[in-house]
Design a binder for these strands. Structure first.
Lengths: 334, 334
DNA sequence: AGGTATGCTTGAAACGTTTCAAGTCTAGTG
DNA sequence: CACTAGACTTGAAACGTTTCAAGCATACCT
């Protein structure tokens, strides 16, 4: 049905090896042969079969992108960065949402392995790298996304989360807060743990007290529930840092329901600076992460590793977060 | 490196044909042979090569998903539906954002064609189906996503947009509004045109006046700009319907900046009911679309077409939108 | 003229599956 | 006991590329 190199070769009156050369090493072919072949390709509408190509070359020009939840605008933006870098290189991106479930992650890892993808970008759903080792051994490039664990096995790209936590705490201290609440996400998420470490270290050094509460997911609903629970336990503080903006949005909802005003009664700092943070009920002060750049850089790194045959030195790229001040923070009301 | 059927066959002491049978038609194989083969597969950690398989079977167990912008929460949810349905069937999903650009759409179509994907789900960036025809001729299943154009060539899944427009206008009339503004998106987006048609028909039948303004994109920024421009042109009405929630969020921002209050000075109806609509500065009244279901149904339809060899009858699936009332609409202030 | 380097082209093997006609066994039948 | 039907297994071809050793001209050098 679809034309193959054979058809092109026949029409151009050359061997299939030559057609392949035109496709892959055009300089090795004389100008007029190449033109003849190119014309045949155009007339036939020939599009090379990736499966056939991959069968030989061992790896598909496809990247796997494994994230907890593309519904989280943070990852949506990361994905855009990945996609743009991939498309530039003629690669496709396979989208894999794990919902933080290890079984789903495994399932996708198997799928990607069977597809023989060239590289995988992953925000691991768990600490262990076990299942990745076989992939790496099999020659698949891996990059850890938004994860700083310095592995000798893979590249990684991340935003300095401890620094982000410190920036948030510093901002609140500057405003005059000395007692803050920290709305964490599930404690097994490394990014959250880092942010927490940054906050606690700063608080410790500056005599701030921190009340820790935890949401069971990184979603607005979970934030609403967790904050609601904290309020009914009479927990209070003049300021709140949330592990991400979604949580913050939920927390605002719970606070508003309880009759508290933001920032008059309580200041709130979010994390990620997703687009909606600016349009929220109270425009959110947040810690911005270079999301698109993160994805773009990760994809470039991994593409580099896929393409070059030379021994590749794994790299770590670190980005810095940045404070964005909006209306959800102010000096504590006295 | 990676083990192949050959290795499995050797270890299990059978021919490779038998291994293939175990994989694809287990019932044709005697129980103990199958067990032996399965053990070998497990011990070797054998994972079949999709490229090799696809080379024979002509089509990859992969779906292409072409959308304008995964950053739009509407499509994010649709994507989740698609992904879940695909994963259930062991298919992967290749994510393709077009940004409504025809050149990007073409590029992706070529990429997907070369990957020999089994099916493509597309929200076309333009009216023409031209470039899709070759794909269809080549045996690739196509489904139109969120697009009602009744094609004899492809399945389609959509939400009744005219009905959505009518629902929005009806709601405003019920509240007592008789002069409304309609913030449209680019006029070449079919969904927008349909919603508009629904609004205009209803307005026409009920003596409402409609002022039409247009944003050059379906984003919050574009909504902000378009609304700002309308305000400086002294356009006004007691109510506003927006082509989607993103636009509505932007419009709210522009209105707020101009000192107008929602809904006291102007009521607003959004479209899509994205999660953030509920958390917005003013919780948004909106027209809900079954986003996840839309994606899920589309993927199921196309998977069905991919898998079965029988002549496939293309189907259209229609969903109905639904009004969700929040705080952004009220009776006009007199 | 003989020799060698250079540029281009070719043909065939290999990649890892699926498919299917043909083959081997086994058990059942008359 | 000879036959046949059925159950299972095999071997080889085919899918569409890439790769590479080998071949063939042509041009250059001495």
């Amino acid at each position: 049905m679809a034309p193959s190199v054979k058809d092109v070769a026949a029409m151009a009156g050359v061997s299939i090896g030559t057609v392949s050369n035109v496709l892959n090493r055009p300089t090795k072919v004389s100008t007029d042969t190449r033109e003849r072949v190119e014309r045949a390709i155009r007339e036939l509408g020939f599009i090379p079969s990736a499966p056939a190509r991959n069968l030989r070359t061992k790896h598909a020009r496809v990247l796997g992108l494994i994230v907890p939840d593309i519904g989280n605008p943070f990852f949506t933006e990361v994905a855009r960065g990945v996609e743009d870098a991939a498309l530039e290189a003629g690669y496709g991106v396979m989208l894999c949402n794990t919902d933080q479930r290890a079984d789903r992650e495994d399932q996708y890892l198997r799928l990607l392995e069977s597809q023989r993808v060239g590289g995988i970008l992953i925000t691991p759903a768990r600490r262990s790298m076990k299942p990745l080792d076989r992939l790496i051994a099999g020659g698949t490039a891996i990059a850890l996304l938004d994860n700083s664990s310095p592995s000798r096995q893979a590249c990684s790209v991340y935003v300095d989360d401890a620094m982000g936590g410190t920036i948030a705490a510093t901002h609140l201290q500057d405003l005059g807060h000395s007692s803050i609440m920290w709305l964490a996400g599930p404690s097994d998420i490394p990014q959250v743990a880092e942010r927490e470490a940054g906050i606690l270290r700063f608080a410790n050094e500056h005599d701030m007290t921190v009340i820790r509460i935890e949401a069971e997911q990184m979603s607005a609903e979970a934030g609403d529930r967790a904050m609601g629970a904290a309020l009914s336990n009479k927990l209070s503080a003049t300021a709140l840092i949330c592990a991400n903006d979604l949580l913050a949005l939920g927390a605002v909802r719970a606070l508003t329901r309880a009759g508290l005003r933001v920032p008059q009664d309580i200041s709130i700092v979010g994390y990620d600076d997703i687009d909606f943070a600016a349009n929220a009920a109270v425009p959110l002060t947040s810690i911005r992460q270079p999301k698109y750049e993160l994805g773009f850089a990760a994809a470039q790194l991994i593409l580099q590793e896929c393409e070059s045959s030379e021994p590749h030195a794994h790299r770590q790229i670190r980005f810095e977060p940045q404070l964005v001040i909006r209306s959800s923070t102010s000096a504590p009301h006295t």
